[in-house]
Design a protein around this nucleic acid. Structure first.
Lengths: 198, 198
DNA sequence: GTATGTATACTAACCAGTGAATATACACAA
DNA sequence: TTGTGTATATTCACTGGTTAGTATACATAC
């Protein structure tokens, strides 16, 4: 039965996403993705020209929803800039306590494919992180922060650090530690009255 | 020619380290490791009971030298606590600019094997990071920091974040950004006179 | 003459990608 | 209304290659 096409492609990406995120790229075979999507490998290769292409689609599908979530958490939190940013980390900690959580798909893919620097999936991951950084930088600039780019980069480092450390230790409390560090850095940049952290 | 034994085992670990770090765990076959070590796979399986065992040996061999390097960079830098810690990041930035640099072997392995939470390699990685954190915590405690554990965790987050971000973007300047953030956090914890970062 | 160490040759499974054929839906003609 | 061509979509069966791990035999040192 032809003529679905877009739904089919969507279904393949859904299946690929679940498998690649949970098991890793190289661990998952194209056959497994096809089986999970309920079709044959040959059909999958009709919609995607290679496994690399499928991996790229997996990450591309994560880009917008991920950023939207961060923006939502930021927007729905009442308070000043430090509090709103810290809220992102608190919400992330909640996600990370879910048993199926396995870190950041972009970072894990870039780690697994580190021997293929030009791989499309890595470019998509890099662009995703740049978008997040840009959003922070713009937000900080609007608040009159002196060096908004530097502060945005520092927050990004804390975010990605917490992804990596929480994945390694399976201890989501690091996510909250990162949030506190972010708050301290933002308060310092704002020139807020100093207050020993603790 | 029998009777070398320990040198042989060592040679295998050396070969495995180069390959696993450069190419990734699942990408590298046991045959490749054996070939690089100049012997057959069967001999390799005489010294290691499985590939997992070999992966564990690869990371175990990285543990001490890595920590020693951080301690060395810290010790050989003149100045206060913030400057000495920042020096670690500066030295790391220099390493990261080397073309063969591919991030932190512990983090990349934990990302690749995230679907096997009990894997020995992940436990070795977690223990390694704990050792680093413990060293920082002890050092901070000796300097009278109020909450040395929290600060040590924050620095660890920045360190591992910079590993991840620099690997993704291939831009070692993030390592220096992380160093500045570390300095800011330490100065804040020390109650130093506030100074807008920038 | 036995522990230790090494090599040859193999198994059984897996995997990315393809060749050839087929089925369906729809446009258009009769 | 009915037949027919064509692009779209799907399947079966296959290839050539790779992989972790092993059965068996052989060599060296002490």
């Amino acid at each position: 039965m032809p003529r679905p096409s877009e739904p089919t492609r969507e279904r393949i990406v859904q299946a690929a996403s679940a498998l690649f995120y949970n098991e890793g790229i190289r661990r998952v075979s194209v056959d497994e993705v096809a089986a999970k999507a309920g079709l044959t490998k040959r059909t999958l290769y009709y919609h995607f020209k290679s496994k690399d292409d499928l991996v790229a689609a997996y990450l591309a599908a994560r880009d917008q929803p991920n950023l939207a979530l961060f923006r939502k958490w930021f927007a729905e939190t009442d308070g000043g800039l430090p509090v709103k940013v810290e809220a992102i980390f608190k919400n992330l900690a909640r996600s990370a306590r879910h048993p199926k959580w396995k870190g950041c798909g972009f970072l894990r893919t870039s780690a697994e494919l580190a021997n293929m620097p030009g791989h499309p999936a890595i470019r998509i991951g890099a662009a995703h992180k740049k978008k997040f950084e840009d959003w922070l930088r713009t937000t900080f600039a609007e608040q009159g922060i002196a060096d908004p780019l530097k502060l945005a980069r520092q927050i990004l480092l804390l975010l990605d650090g917490s992804f990596a450390v929480v994945l390694l230790h399976r201890d989501a409390s690091y996510m909250e530690t990162a949030g506190e560090a972010a708050r301290t850095l933002i308060e310092t940049a704002l020139g807020k009255p100093r207050r020993k952290q603790g």
